[in-house]
Simulated assay, not measured.
Amino acid sequence: MASSSSLTKLVFFACCLLLFTFSDNLVAGQSDKVQLNVYYDSLCSDCQDFIVNYLVEFFDSDLFTITNVTFVPFGNDELSDNQTVTCQHGEYECQLNEYEACIIRTVPDPKLQYSFIRCIENYTTNWPSSCFNGSAADKQAVISDNCYYSDLGRKLILGYANQTLSLNPKPDFVPWITVNGDPFYSHRIDDLVATVCTAYKGTASLPTQCSSTALAERKGWSKLQVSYANEAINY
């Protein structure tokens, strides 16, 4: 018979799996917005490029009115049978993933949440001073529930690990993007905008970025670079 401790752990991870699997399937039927999930790891250069240079359009334009972006910081990292996380780009990546998981939990405003994550991905070596502008109040707001300095941060990462590893089909690379739960395979930024515009089934007017003229003008724009798990860097 399983011990009380083992049973408690089993229930916890089952709840995490249920919660995070559900979060990947938030679709237009439950919200007018298109659900855009971004699976990434923090020190992946291709993930950083997408988050910093391309995802910004979904927050700084009318696309924000039809899109709900959810971040999942785990990506190509690995989870052992004893629940140990090994990060593709070393221990520092594990730390940043956990810190960003705490931001996702404690900062409800999606634009502010993205601004923190974007800044960290842009200034990975000196983000504490660059992203909080030396403000202890801002930093404390993110960790006010002792998320990062407690076991909660690790539990959040384990939840994201279970969410990522339970995806079907399994991600081949990062950033791995899903639109209303469906993988986005194109690797073209212009196609991502078109896919989101097509997926929107709400009653509000479509953003100007979704017009046929605007989409035609985007054709041939930058290709989304991706990183495969077998390209891991050893530290």
Rank of each mutant, 00 (worst) to 15 (best):
L156C: 02
N168R: 04
I51M: 06
F64A: 13
Q140K: 01
V69M: 01
T86F: 12
L10K: 10
W221E: 15
L165V: 06
G90L: 04
F20D: 08
G134C: 03
L156E: 08
F22S: 11
G29Y: 06
P110W: 05
C44R: 09
A229I: 12
S135D: 09
Y114W: 05
Q140M: 06
V11T: 13
T67I: 10
Y228M: 08
E100R: 02
D191S: 06
N97Q: 08
Y39K: 03
Q225P: 01
R188D: 11
H89V: 03
S227F: 10
K170S: 11
N68L: 01
F59M: 07
Y54G: 13
T178H: 04
A14H: 13
V142K: 00
G181D: 09
D60N: 15
I120F: 03
L17E: 15
E57T: 13
G75D: 07
D24P: 12
Q113T: 02
E93S: 03
D190I: 10
V52A: 06
D32K: 11
A214P: 11
N82W: 04
Y149S: 15
I143K: 00
L55P: 10
T198A: 11
K170H: 08
P183E: 05
A28W: 05
L152F: 11
H89R: 01
T213V: 13
V179E: 11
D32C: 11
N68Y: 01
S135V: 03
R105M: 15
L224T: 05
F173Q: 09
Y92G: 09
Y185D: 10
S4T: 12
E121G: 08
S6Y: 00
A204M: 14
N68V: 00
N146L: 08
D190F: 02
D190K: 02
E100C: 11
C147S: 01
E57K: 13
N234Q: 15
T178I: 06
A101W: 08
S31M: 04
P183G: 01
W176D: 02
Q209L: 11
E57G: 01
P108A: 04
I103D: 13
S211Q: 04
N53R: 14
L215R: 12
L224P: 09
G75C: 03
A199D: 08
I120P: 11
A136C: 13
E121V: 01
L18M: 09
